[in-house]
C-alpha cells in the first residue's frame, strides 16, 4: 500500500481553480519534488498534506488515515527563516519540541526519548552546537536543526517546503544529503517543494509540476522536457540541459526560476 495517496484533489479559491483532479501516490522511500511558478498552490498542497487546509474536492490519506489525524506522524521542514538573535533557546530544545512539543503539561523526556534526541542531533551533524543559543547560529546550522526536529519523531512522511531557500551551495548539498540518506535508511517518503530542481535533481524519483491551472507528474525525464512543459503551459517552452543542470526558458511567468546562476 502506498504511504501517501492523493486522489482527485481539487483546490479552488473563489473562481480560481489552482488544480483539478490532482492524483499521485508515494511509495516507501520515494522522493517527490514539487515544482512550479509562484501562485500555483505548492504551499497549499503542503498545508493539505498537513491537514491544515481542506481541499475543495478529493481525498488524501497518509498510512491510510486522514492528514489531520497524522500531524504528529509527519515531519515538516519549513523555509529557512532565521530565528531571532536574542531567542533564549538552544538548538537541542528546538529538536526536542519535534518529539514532545505537542503534548500537554510539563515533563522530562524518558531516557529512551532523550537518547533519541541525542542520536538525531548527531545524525544531522549538529552535535557541536546543539547547546549554543539558536539565534546566534548561522542559517545553515539552524536549518540542520530544523531537519533534526522533523526527523526526531521518526515520521511516516517528510514534508519540506523550500528548505534550501537562502542557503549557500554547500549547505544546500548538506540538507539534501541528509534528507536523501534518511529516506534511504528509514524508508520515509519525502515531498520536497522547491522552485529550483537542480540542487535535488540527482536524488529525485518523481516530479510533480504545477502550472497555472494544470499539473503533470512523472519521472524527471518525462516531465522536464520541452514537449511536456509546452503542453502544460500551453505556450512554447524550452527545457535545456547544461552541464548536468536543467534550465527552463520561455515560461509565461518571467521571474521563473531555473536559472543557471542562482543568486547565493
Amino acid at each position: 500500500m502506498s504511504v501517501v495517496s492523493v486522489e482527485g484533489l481539487t483546490l479552488r479559491f473563489g473562481d480560481r481553480v489552482l488544480w483539478r483532479d490532482l492524483s499521485f501516490a508515494l511509495e516507501r522511500g520515494e522522493l517527490l519534488a514539487v515544482l512550479g511558478p509562484n501562485g500555483t498552490g505548492k504551499t497549499s498542497l503542503v498545508r493539505i498534506l498537513l491537514g491544515l487546509l481542506e481541499p475543495s474536492a478529493g481525498t488524501v490519506t497518509i498510512d491510510g488515515r486522514l492528514p489531520a489525524e497524522m500531524r504528529s506522524r509527519v515531519g515538516y521542514i519549513p523555509q529557512q527563516r532565521i530565528f531571532d538573535r536574542e531567542l533564549a533557546l538552544r538548538g537541542r530544545d528546538l529538536v526536542r519540541l519535534g518529539l514532545d512539543g505537542h503534548r500537554w503539561g510539563a515533563a522530562r523526556l524518558s531516557t529512551t526519548e532523550h537518547e533519541r534526541v541525542e542520536r538525531t542531533i548527531e545524525s544531522v551533524g549538529a552535535g557541536g552546537y546543539a547547546d549554543a543559543p539558536l539565534g546566534r547560529l548561522s542559517g545553515g546550522e539552524q536549518q540542520r536543526l530544523r531537519v533534526a526536529q522533523a526527523l526526531v519523531s521518526n515520521p511516516s512522511l517528510l514534508l519540506a517546503d523550500e528548505p534550501l531557500l537562502s542557503l549557500d551551495l554547500a549547505y544546500q548539498q548538506i540538507i539534501t544529503g541528509l534528507l536523501d540518506s534518511h529516506r534511504r535508511s528509514a524508508g520515509t517518503p519525502v515531498v520536497f517543494v522547491t522552485h529550483d530542481i537542480n540542487p535535488v535533481l540527482s536524488i529525485v524519483d518523481r516530479v510533480l509540476y504545477l502550472a497555472p491551472g494544470r499539473w503533470a507528474v512523472g519521472a524527471p525525464d518525462e516531465v522536464l522536457t520541452s514537449e511536456a512543459l509546452s503542453a502544460l503551459y500551453g505556450t512554447p517552452v524550452d527545457v535545456l540541459r547544461l552541464r548536468g543542470r536543467v534550465v527552463v526558458v520561455g515560461t509565461p511567468d518571467d521571474q521563473h526560476v531555473h536559472h543557471v546562476d542562482h543568486a547565493h
Binding site: 504528529s72 505537542h102 503539561g105
Partner: peptide, 23 residues
C-alpha cells in the same frame, strides 16, 4: 502555565513548526 507548558513553549518559539505538528 504548567498544563500548557510544552505546546505554549513550542508555539512561542516556532509557531510554524508547532502548527504543522497540530498544536
Amino acid at each position: 502555565v504548567v498544563a500548557l507548558y510544552r505546546p505554549l513553549l513550542f508555539s512561542s518559539v516556532d509557531p510554524e513548526g508547532a502548527e504543522a505538528r497540530g498544536v
